[in-house]
């Protein structure tokens, strides 16, 4: 060891500090920023355009049917001469609403069922999980069509049908998480400290699975939007006059064959882009909530 005054302490600027791993971080940051910007634009458009725009999205102008994109109609017009940009924003609004409601309901059901199965264990767990397995073995869309067909077309039946077919995966995720947590010593310590079954579930297990469940919910929003679009496309979802993204694509089918690409492309983009943006944000969030990452300081 040398007796020289330590060079490293003073810190700021005087010593040549070397950094690590900056490059990987920046690409991730870019992805997150782009996703966040896209989600923000989507949300703003959906919230602000309908009340601010004086235009009527249902205004039919048969003289201007199927016009390609222009300054007056940036996305062109559909077969009834309606402005596609406006229709897409309204459609996104409906689809997003269905997606959010369905994801919320599915997550609440899934978390409750999964947490109960995991926390109770034994026979209750086995019974519940067999039901989940059985339901999962039926194709989602088929089950969804069945449920929708029971009701009159509208937003509520579609949201219910998507929620009813999508809580299964959340239940599985939450149950697996609860099962792995249940054997942790900190649960033992809580039991030894006199905590009731209810208190252990509510205070120690549920808060631990909520981030996972919330992540599943966020990822389910685009999924539910896809389902809504699929149901509407099949003519079973929302009433045909309602501007949902699925309805827009559906009604554009015939014009696509005639070479008019815009009535299909733009609603399609409105389905894909928010989906990717939400998935991008959720991916970044998943990395953040991983507790192993948070304690990377190795102390």
């Amino acid at each position: 060891m040398t007796c020289d005054a330590p060079a490293a302490e003073a810190g700021t600027g005087s010593t040549p500090w070397r950094s690590y791993g900056t490059k990987r971080r920046s690409t991730r940051t870019v992805r997150v920023r782009v996703s966040a910007a896209l989600v923000a634009v989507t949300v703003l458009a959906v919230l602000l355009v309908p009340p601010l725009a004086q235009l009527d999205q249902q205004a039919v102008d048969l003289a201007a049917e199927l016009q390609p994109p222009s300054w007056a109609h940036p996305f062109g017009t559909d077969d009834l001469g309606r402005d596609l940009l406006l229709r897409c924003v309204y459609g996104l609004r409906v689809s997003l609403l269905v997606g959010l409601v369905a994801a919320l309901v599915a997550t609440v059901i899934g978390t409750a069922v999964g947490a109960a199965a995991g926390a109770l264990g034994g026979w209750a767990d086995r019974c519940v999980m067999r039901v989940v397995d059985t339901l999962s073995s039926v194709p989602h869309l088929l089950l969804g069509i069945f449920i929708v067909a029971l009701f009159r077309p509208g937003v509520v039946p579609v949201a219910v049908s998507v929620a009813a077919t999508h809580w299964l995966s959340t239940a599985r995720i939450v149950r697996a998480e609860v099962l792995s947590l249940r054997s942790r010593p900190y649960i033992d310590a809580a039991v030894s400290g006199g905590a009731s079954r209810w208190r252990v579930a509510v205070r120690h297990l549920l808060p631990a699975v909520l981030p996972q469940a919330a992540l599943a919910a966020v990822l389910m929003v685009p999924h539910a939007m896809w389902h809504e679009s699929a149901l509407s496309f099949l003519g079973l979802g929302l009433p045909a006059h309602m501007a949902s993204l699925g309805n827009l694509v559906q009604s554009a089918r015939s014009s696509l064959l005639a070479g008019q690409w815009w009535p299909t492309l733009f609603p399609g983009l409105f389905i894909i882009v928010p989906t990717l943006a939400i998935a991008g944000l959720a991916g970044a969030w998943r990395e953040r909530i991983n507790p192993r990452r948070r304690s990377e300081l190795m102390l």
């Binding site: 060079a7 490293a8 010593t15 040549p16 500090w17 070397r18 950094s19 690590y20 791993g21 900056t22 990987r24 971080r25 990377e296 300081l297 190795m298």
Partner: peptide, 10 residues
């Protein structure tokens, strides 16, 4: 194997 937020000297 230092994480990305680390800096080293020496």
């Amino acid at each position: 194997l230092l994480p990305a937020n680390a800096q080293s000297a020496g």
